[in-house]
Design a protein around this nucleic acid. Structure first.
Lengths: 154, 154
DNA sequence: ACGTATTTGTACGTATGTATC
DNA sequence: AGATACATACGTACAAATACG
């Protein structure tokens, strides 16, 4: 259960329900914040491409440490839900997937790229690679945020 | 380039080449350590299933902070290279993949599971899910460390 | 059964660097 | 130049889980 309190803004007379974070809960603070922001993304309260509040916002809003905020954001990055740059974080934009055709016999797996592979292939955190092993040759790697695999009859 | 120094152990008369970490290098300390351990895993100096030294070992060995060690290990976890429990970390054991057969038309993508999905499906950090979208029905999820997709003619 | 040691997990603090607006 | 925001890196403290004597 997510705790909340109601807040009124005297300037706008708007009432807002603000989720709370309970430092004494069983779930760690940083996971509570991750859950909260993940929920906002899944409900599209935060839409693809939209800016996510700065770390300091969450520090001030919930009275938690920057460390906890950063660990929450790291979780969301690793889930592929947000993208972070030194200018801030955004909800990951909608994916446009190019299709790669595979023929019968082809084997497909997925794994996370190593950090050097990420740099080499310009892959963001939280994005797996599809590993396509065709009958003979070496496995080919495709970033999963740009690629879908389509099976054909021949 | 990884810097190193030679060390002699008077008790055993063994000479060892020990990699070093340069706090003044362009590459961050924690990435240098991640590179170092990743290399040991790729060269199978550290084998699948084998115990990885405790955080304190790296703190003492390289004179870096626990924070840096933990961030290096977090990187390797997110790359799916190691598994960490409250008792320590190990090189991820060899995968045994069950094959899932797909017929022509089927679409396959991959993404990282959310943290709640991970708990639900008992998926470890650094393991993507394969998303199999058959002609009609809902997408099915398969943990990529237990599943390979095989395309067939019909 | 019980305490102890080991190891990772969480959470706070501080400081400084870097990139961008 | 200054403000903003994230990145790195050091420190501390205590909690939780597990293995062992």
């Amino acid at each position: 259960m997510i705790r909340a309190y109601a807040r009124s803004d005297p300037a706008t007379s708007l009432h807002t329900v603000v989720a709370m974070i309970d430092p004494d809960a069983d779930r760690p603070v940083y996971k509570q914040l991750a859950d909260l922001v993940r929920g906002q993304i899944e409900r599209t309260d935060l839409r693809p491409g939209q800016r996510i509040p700065a770390e300091q916002f969450y520090v001030a809003e919930y009275g938690i440490s920057r460390d906890s905020v950063r660990r929450a954001m790291a979780s969301l990055r690793n889930e592929g839900l947000i993208i972070t740059t030194p200018r801030g974080s955004r909800v990951r934009p909608e994916r446009h997937l190019a299709e790669v055709i595979i023929t019968p016999g082809t084997l497909v797996t997925a794994r996370m790229p190593t950090e050097p592979e990420r740099r080499l292939l310009a892959i963001k955190e939280g994005v797996p690679v599809l590993v396509v092993q065709r009958d003979q040759g070496d496995p080919e790697l495709f970033p999963a945020d740009r690629t879908a695999i389509r099976a054909t009859g021949e």
